[in-house]
């Protein structure tokens, strides 16, 4: 794993961008530049800013530089029998932790182990004026000051250039298993409701008329749970492919890829490619009009988030009102007054 600290040069680059009013595109491993709207600006690479700054296995907390590949972090903590508490999607071996924080995505473990946002304890960021600031910390409970570190999660790098992040870890499960069962969605929902809290679930997805359940934990517990669930065994790799959006159903570059976030028991939608998070996160690879997808979600009290697709001019997130959009714009102004960070990537006017 590389180990280099580019803090000073990153601050200088952003400072200069701020002074010149010249936007920059923040790039990590460069593996997920196709997510979100097309940004305007000179690329600023963080890939060289990498390495572990602090790791206390007994504390289950690690602090890493933002350009560190996710895979490298996983390998380092796996040597101590640990893993990242939040399961992180990646495009390939280059995908960095900084990119993960910017996109704010969490894998299938989300309903059972929490989101990336929840696993973030603190950050150091360079704001749009080139200032180096630290928010949050290394401890689980911390209510001093506004929670700016978690504000960064899912902001597509528009509020600050992440320099390093402190993340929660968890023990690696002794055993993992996947069971696959043929059933319809309502039956899958009621089973999941019954199993949740009783069985060591760590993932639940539904597609192709099959419910797939991942179990993680103590060997004996997993074996007993697998027997109780029934169905057939399936390779654990299916959940890794789901986590990284590598499943064949999502490999459709000609159409848009959506995340549809709804209450988990929501009935099947018209264009569901894959249901993840026990029902709460659904991926739609569809040529449907954006308005149709968003309407489906909002009718069910949810939100449709556009991830990527051929047309990069639409909105990423729906915003409920003009007033709220204006409020978010003022937040942006507080952290990046000249709109130099990833200009246009999240909202057209940012």
């Amino acid at each position: 794993m590389g180990d280099a600290d580019l803090t000073e040069s990153v601050c200088a680059s952003v400072r200069s961008a701020y002074e010149r009013n010249a936007p920059i595109e923040v790039v990590g491993g460069g593996s997920r530049r196709d997510f979100g709207r097309a940004p305007i600006g000179e690329p600023l690479s963080l890939a060289g800013h990498c390495g572990i700054i602090g790791y206390e296995p007994g504390e289950y907390v690690i602090t890493v530089r933002s350009g560190t590949p996710i895979a490298d972090i996983e390998a380092a903590v796996a040597a101590h029998g640990q893993m990242l508490l939040a399961e992180l999607p990646r495009a390939d071996q280059r995908s960095t932790i900084g990119g993960a924080v910017a996109l704010g995505l969490t894998g299938p473990g989300r309903p059972y182990r929490g989101s990336l946002r929840d696993a973030v304890l603190g950050v150091r960021v360079v704001t749009g004026t080139g200032q180096l600031l630290r928010f949050g910390g290394q401890v689980l409970k911390n209510v001093a000051g506004f929670d700016v570190s978690r504000l960064m999660v899912g902001a597509y790098g528009t509020l600050g250039v992440l320099l390093d992040v402190t993340l929660r870890l968890a023990p690696r499960p002794e055993e993992e298993a996947v069971r696959i069962l043929h059933c319809d969605w309502p039956a899958a929902c009621s089973r999941l409701l019954h199993w949740s809290g009783r069985l060591p679930l760590s993932g639940a997805s539904y597609y192709g008329d099959h419910l797939r359940v991942r179990l993680s934990g103590d060997g004996a517990l997993v074996a007993r749970a697998a027997a109780q669930i029934g169905g057939d065994a399936a390779p654990i790799g299916e959940f890794h492919a789901l986590r990284d959006l590598r499943l064949a159903r999502l490999q459709t570059p000609a159409v848009a890829l959506w995340r549809v976030l709804v209450p988990p028991a929501t009935p099947l939608g018209p264009a569901e490619s894959i249901i993840d998070w026990g029902g709460a996160q659904r991926f739609w690879a569809t040529a449907e009009a954006a308005a149709t997808v968003r309407q489906f979600a909002s009718d069910r009290g949810g939100q449709a988030v556009w991830l990527k697709g051929p047309d990069r001019g639409g909105d990423v997130w729906p915003v409920s009102s003009i007033a709220t959009l204006a409020l978010l714009g003022r937040l942006k102004g507080a952290l990046d007054p000249h709109h130099v960070l990833n200009r246009g990537r999240l909202f057209p006017a940012w």
């Binding site: 978690r150 504000l151 960064m152 209450p263």
Partner: peptide, 24 residues
Amino acid sequence: GVLHEFGGPTAEGPLGVLALVVGS
């Protein structure tokens, strides 16, 4: 006096505004 909504069925939103509001 303007009403805003933050979060959603999975607590996510554009930016972690919900996390900013909770504990503010």
